[in-house]
Design a protein around this nucleic acid. Sequence first.
RNA 1: GCGCGCGUGGCGGAAUUGGCAGACGCACUAGAUUUAGGUUCUAGCGGUAACCCCGUGCAGGUUCAAGUCCUGUCGUGCGCACCA
Length: 823
Amino acid sequence: MQEQYNFTEIEQKWQDHWDQTKMFKKTEDPDKEKYYLLEMFPYPSGKLHMGHVRNYSIGDVIARHLTMKGKNVLHPMGWDSFGLPAENAAIKHGTAPAIWTRENIAEMREQLKTLGISYDWDREVATCQPDYYRWMQWIFIKFFEKGLAYKKKNPVNWCPSCQTVLANEQVVDGECERCHSAVGKKDLDQWYLKITDYADRLLTDLETLDGWPTKVKTMQKNWIGKSTGAEVDFAIKDFDKDLRIFTTRADTLFGVTYMVLAPEHPYVKDLVSGTDYEKSTADFMDRLQYMTDIERTSTTLEKEGIFIGRYAINPMNGKEVPIYIANYVLMDYGTGAIMAVPAHDQRDFEFAIKYNLPIIPVIDPKNPEIDLYNLKEAFEAEGDLINSEQFNGKNNVVAIDEFIAFLEEKKIGTKTTNFRLRDWLISRQRYWGTPIPMIYCEHCGWVAEKFENLPVLLPTDVEFTGKGESPLATSKTFQNTTCPTCGGPAKRELDTMDTFLDSSWYFLRYTDAKNENAPWDKEKSDYWMPVDQYIGGVEHAILHLLYARFFNKFLFDLGLCPSSEPFKNLLTQGMVLKDGTKMSKSKGNVVSPEEIINQYGADTARLFILFASPPEKELEWSDAGVEGSYRFLNRVYRLVSELADETKDAADTYKVDSADDKELAFVLNSTIKKVTEDLGTRFNFNTAISSIMILVNELYKYKEIEQRNKALLKYSINCLILLLSPFTPHICEEMWAGLGHKESAYAESWPSVDEKALVKDEVEVVIQINGKVKDKITVANGLSKEEFLELAMKNDAVSALTEGKTILKVIPVPGKLINIVIK
RNA sequence: GCGCGCGUGGCGGAAUUGGCAGACGCACUAGAUUUAGGUUCUAGCGGUAACCCCGUGCAGGUUCAAGUCCUGUCGUGCGCACCA
């Protein structure tokens, strides 16, 4: 074993070794318990950042630890390689997106390899490759066949400067994330996936996800936003159609004083046509047209509306109430129309005050401080019903169901559930994405491409202007085709898919990444799925995780995967910060992983990141902390190289001879216990590492004593290396080999705890008076309460302090402390 | 505005079940080794001159005992934000 810790040489050597021996290649093995460990795959931007290093280091610790514990660990890696940056590079520099992406992947794969993560590289996938997106198209067609993919004309986000549609997530504070111009609306024919069909299951199954952080589940729950209520029909005076509204507050029906329609509501035109209100309505709508969604739906925006000259009739009491249109009612939620109850809804209240509309209370708060007929704000809490005829006197919450039953009986309303979740707009007017495998035929309408013609390849003869329609329209060969049904002339869809689709099923493809006849083999996904542990940033808490759950459920329904949820456990890692803020180019506080690895080695980088903070928490980068980790690895290396010779011929099993031996055996076994627990159940890598540091300190002390037990020393350093090996794999393999072991450290099984070594002869206990520590004494282990009490009372500090006082109570906790309460 | 999380030394953090607050590391101080610097080693390191004592954002409460549980409050971070 070399005396110097030469990380550059060591890391290269072992990376090559793992590569050549295919150490981490895994196959299905029914005799072994499987464990599917997955880290969110990266977008291949070309450079690894610290967030990646953190994500993959965390994963690798778990993977290597469980491998040593005998599990069959699947640990794959791939590339989420479709997306805007590649296309932007094409527009800017003229490089083909495929080439740009391929080069980035190659660069990033090399960087990942320098980190020494235990991936099964044989399962690598890249979503931009035809062998992957072919199956993406196949899945899309399954959605289409099941009626879950449809095309609809709808107002979508439109950037007037880039001349393209933007996804909601690409609209930041009402501006285009690329050019910062204000985003408007445009009516476009787009493909949607019917995720709303799965809304209920996506919501209720959250409860089964015990291994997910509550925060993420709550975010998903709010995003899905289920609310139960009723749809109620209001007749419109002198109009042949009823106005249907949605409300969660059927109990307040008698408090309705006006109605509001969304300005886009289909009735509006007919209601004002040929009346005195036609012009004012048109003017109002013109003004709204120029507002972005963000502005329109901002709570800070003042509520604004106009009366459209019509009246609706309250079905409960026949009262006529005016109909308004207003900016605060949205067309795409519920029915796009509401009943307004200003007394019990703050939004309606503000609107009523502004336009001087009546406010009728129907719930009595039973609070003398609230003047019901002169409200300062809407009363939204519980109370007893008033002004509500036969419902008077009932608790309003209880009465909701009675109201709904009444409505249903009279056939003027039905119990209804609404979701905040909308269908998923997946069309993108972009080049670098999976082509939507649909064909439009004049005779047959929208028809899916035939299976044998998949993949529908991305054409290469396109122009990138960054403007107008999808670049696929500029291809001379792509658009014109024949109809798969009738054989007549037909045109291909020119839009591509949102890249979130690609990442919604990659975890299934990993189970059988090279399959050419199916997206994956059912038996293989049955063996590996679900993912036992998923690790990634919390920024994916809603979209990616919701979409992936949706896909998995759909594929589960098709019988293609064994569980209806894809990810059993989820770990959301915290951000990597520098100087208290997120690392970013614009702030100039980016620390490059490449530089750190060159300067200190991957093991040091990994150790620092894992030691500095628990994985869910934010991590503050510290150059001094990195130095410290480097120092520790040198200290371990020195220790092992100094002891390698001395322990070379020692026996493999040890006997405890002295008090020093006993102490070392105790520290060693507590460390094994602590590291095993921290790695296996808590994922608290920082405390696991600190306990290994304590073991190292103990070994340095032991090394200096005269009567050294060589067998115990040998066993201890072997364990030390194995315990450290999930964190810093290269140096550990090197030290392991340096001790004369022929096999890799990862072929070794994880050290087990000798419980006997954890039992001490003597323990230190605390003596408290009135809950304050006064003394500490060392007593024999396993003392009874009585013996313990007797010893404590004899203690000098106790006698001094209790003299002349009354002892009220004594609470002995054997093995820990005794508390004497005096007065 | 609503929901969720977090407040512990100079810093990152530990205290898993209510039972010794500050493990481990960084920074710092002193000493040893070294021609010197670095490395390495030893010791110290919440406040206080000091023992007593005081100390986990603040104010209360429960308990023999509270960083941990309860109530209120302030600060901070994240998410959602007119969803009827």
